[in-house]
Write a protein that binds this DNA or RNA. Structure first.
Length: 130
RNA sequence: CCAGACGGUCGGAUGGUCGCUGCCUGCCCCUAUAGUUAGUGGGCAGGGAGAGGAAAGUCCGGGCUCCAGACGAAACGAUGCCGGAUAACGUCCGGCGAGGGCGACCUUAGGGACAGUGCCACAGAAAACAAACCGCUUGCGGCCUUCGCGUCGCGAGUAAGGGUGAAAAGGUGCGGUAAGAGCGCACCGCGCCCUUGGUAACAGGGGCGGCACGGAAAACCCCAUCGGGAGCAAAACCGCGUAGGAACCGCGCGUCUUCUUGCAAAAGAAGGCACCGUUCUUCGUCACGGCAGCAGGUUCGGGUUGGUUGCUUGAGGCGUCUUGGCAACAAGCGUCCUAGAUGAAUGGCCAUCUCUGCCGCAAGGCACAGACAGAACCCGGCUUACAGACCGUCUGGAAAU
RNA sequence: UCGGGGAUCGUCUAAUGGUAGGACAGCGGCCUUUGAAGCCGUGAAUCUAGGUUCGAGCCCUAGUCCCCGAG
């Protein structure tokens, strides 16, 4: 155990989502889109006294990308949340915010496939941790 | 057994593992306190709970919250056989009328067309105070190698027949007649009156009329009943923060009487009449307020963030329960607590079991919970979507006895 | 959450309750050496399901989809 497990913090404000999107760093897989941006220290971030490194997580499931049924959007969001909670603290660099945008295939693809895609996307963006 | 009608119930289960959101208990920290203790604070551990029959569409009705001074009328909207249930309803129950089905049963916006206005295209002679195109009958006059039951013209009568149309002004039969006609009669229909049953819608019976009354109100409309507006992003509190603005429009300083002060001008008080303002689109009556630099309207500028409450115990669910009622339902008794999120939890992955579907003669194999679908203040309904399973009552048919 | 509007040939757009019309595009022909333009002809539609009516694009009810507005 090199350092303490990073804490997950949920993005709650529209401005935070827009800030991540404006950074224009993203990678697309069949089931989802990953957007990432370094956290702004001074802004609405947590105080610096935080001992544990922080990873920000935001989820987007739109009617346009996933489907018009609320059941499908809920399912896609929950699968992506489970994926992110399990593997982002292991694989992603701390001090960044990540936004996952679900696509239609997030409903049907294997969980193992989602895992590989997430790791691959993080590596391609240069934000992976061995 | 086959076909069908109606009503109801359910709509995966068990386990492992990693997580999420409230609640309860215990411990630790923080804050307050001298302390006991307290907390709307934070963390950890344990326990227990965690989407639906439609959560959906947002089509009705309420509760609740805020806004508005009261009432009435108009306007607008909704409903529309009768009775009942209900907090209320456009819902439900029971009945009536009409229509459909062999039947169980199903469907039904079903008030008013002498209060009024308008419509009924095309076709047809005529489409609503009826009407004479072809016909039918007949009077008068003319015509003739044919004097007829012929033919032509003018007039009168006629709604039986033809033809048009969705609809042609009661239907069928008999009488009647020059031919016909509710012209007369019988039955049916229609209208009015009386009467019996029924709370009523309505149904049965009797009499009279002699056809007068076409359709359509899901055309406008009339009548009756109901409805103030907005919606939990309502609303309240705490904290932070901005501003206590600017421009334009509109309105307004009244008048009379009495009293007091005063020589007077004038000032003050009370009352009346105007005027202005206050509820919802308008109007009216009443009430309240005002006699002043301020209440009103429009536009611009600024701002529109965080937390707590509202927030889940309620017109609540369940019962081979009791009583009343045909029923909807009501009353009583017993019992249970059963989601409260807010960038929004109720999940991810795996295994087993049945159920289902497909392939196969079969053993078996494959897909593997597969339908519709996710709470957002809460209830009662309606409507729409739905794989499959089960239960009950009844109808028609077949077979057996 | 609340409110408003709409759906007609492939596209745009008309139609007092009475034969669904027009333009562009398409297809065929004429003209031309060929094409364009022009001329002639031709196919093609009322969002869905019920109801009222003799008759519905129009009226009523329910549903589907789309657009707009307010907070």
């Amino acid at each position: 155990m090199r350092d303490a497990a990073p804490a997950l913090r949920v993005l709650k404000k529209r401005s935070a989502f827009l800030a991540v999107a404006a950074h224009r760093k993203r990678w697309v897989t069949t089931a989802f889109v990953v957007q990432a941006a370094p956290q702004v220290s001074g802004g609405d971030g947590e105080p610096e006294g935080e001992s544990v490194p922080v990873i920000g997580l935001g989820l987007t499931t739109s009617k346009k990308m996933v489907g018009k049924k609320a059941v499908d959007r809920n399912r896609a969001r929950r699968r992506l949340r489970a994926l992110a909670r399990e593997y982002l603290p292991l694989w992603a660099q701390t001090g960044h915010d990540y936004v996952l945008i679900a696509r239609k295939d997030a409903l049907t693809l294997d969980y193992e496939r989602l895992k590989r895609d997430l790791r691959w996307a993080l590596g391609k963006m240069g934000l992976g941790r061995d």
